[in-house]
C-alpha cells in the first residue's frame, strides 16, 4: 500500500503551537527539535525528534504534547522516534526563535561565545558590558549573566 499523502506544511503549522515547557515563547519548530514527519506504509505517523540535551526533562513532555496534538488532528497511531545523530545544535534554532528569545529576556546563542565569557549582549539594554556569573543556569541549556550597566541578571542560551 502506498502511504497516503500528508501536507507537511500544515502539520508543521500545528507543531508550531507546541512550546518548550521551560521557555514557553519558543516552539519546538523554532528550536529545531522536529527533524521530520512522515506517514509510514501502515498509515501511522512517524515524528522524528532530536533532544536538545541528553538529560533535558522537557523532552518527555514535548513528546507527549506532539502525540496529543497529532491525535487531535485525527492520526490514530503516532510514533515518536528519537534521532541521536546528527546531534542537536543551537545552529538549528530559527532566526525567529532567536528574536523571540531576546524579547523574552534571554540572550540568544552567539558563536563568539561558544565558551561562555564576559561580554554577551544584555537582552534588556543591549550593553556588552556584562559578566558571566555561572556557566550553569536555571536549566541545562542556559548560563547565568549580569549586566554591569543596567544591573539586571539574565540568562544566556549557550551554544551547543
Amino acid at each position: 500500500m502506498k502511504a497516503p499523502a500528508i501536507d507537511k506544511k500544515v502539520l508543521y503549522a500545528y507543531l508550531e503551537e507546541i512550546k518548550d515547557p521551560e521557555i514557553p515563547v519558543l516552539s519546538i519548530i523554532d528550536l529545531g527539535i522536529v527533524r521530520d514527519v512522515v506517514m509510514n506504509e501502515e498509515g501511522e505517523l512517524d515524528v522524528t525528534i532530536t533532544a536538545t540535551y541528553t538529560g533535558c526533562p522537557a523532552m518527555d513532555m514535548i513528546a507527549a504534547a506532539i502525540r496529543v496534538e497529532m491525535h487531535t488532528l485525527g492520526f490514530k497511531k503516532v510514533n515518536i522516534r528519537y534521532a541521536i545523530s546528527p546531534a542537536w545544535t543551537t545552529e538549528w534554532m530559527s532566526k525567529e526563535g532567536k528574536r523571540k528569545l531576546k524579547e523574552y529576556g534571554i540572550a540568544a546563542p552567539d558563536k563568539r561565545f561558544s565558551i561562555p565569557a564576559d561580554g554577551v549582549e544584555c537582552p534588556r539594554c543591549n550593553s556588552v558590558n556584562t559578566r558571566l556569573i555561572s556557566e550553569f543556569g536555571s536549566t541545562a541549556c542556559k548560563a547565568l549573566y549580569q549586566c554591569n550597566d543596567c544591573m539586571e541578571p539574565f540568562d544566556y542560551f549557550k551554544c551547543h
Binding site: 540535551y53 556557566e135 547565568l144
Partner: peptide, 20 residues
C-alpha cells in the same frame, strides 16, 4: 546557589547520558 545549580546540572547531564 550558583554552584548548587551547577552540580545538579552536571547530574542531569550524566543521567541523560545514562538514559541514552
Amino acid at each position: 546557589l550558583e554552584q548548587d545549580i551547577a552540580i545538579t546540572n552536571i547530574s542531569l547531564d550524566l543521567i541523560g547520558q545514562a538514559r541514552s
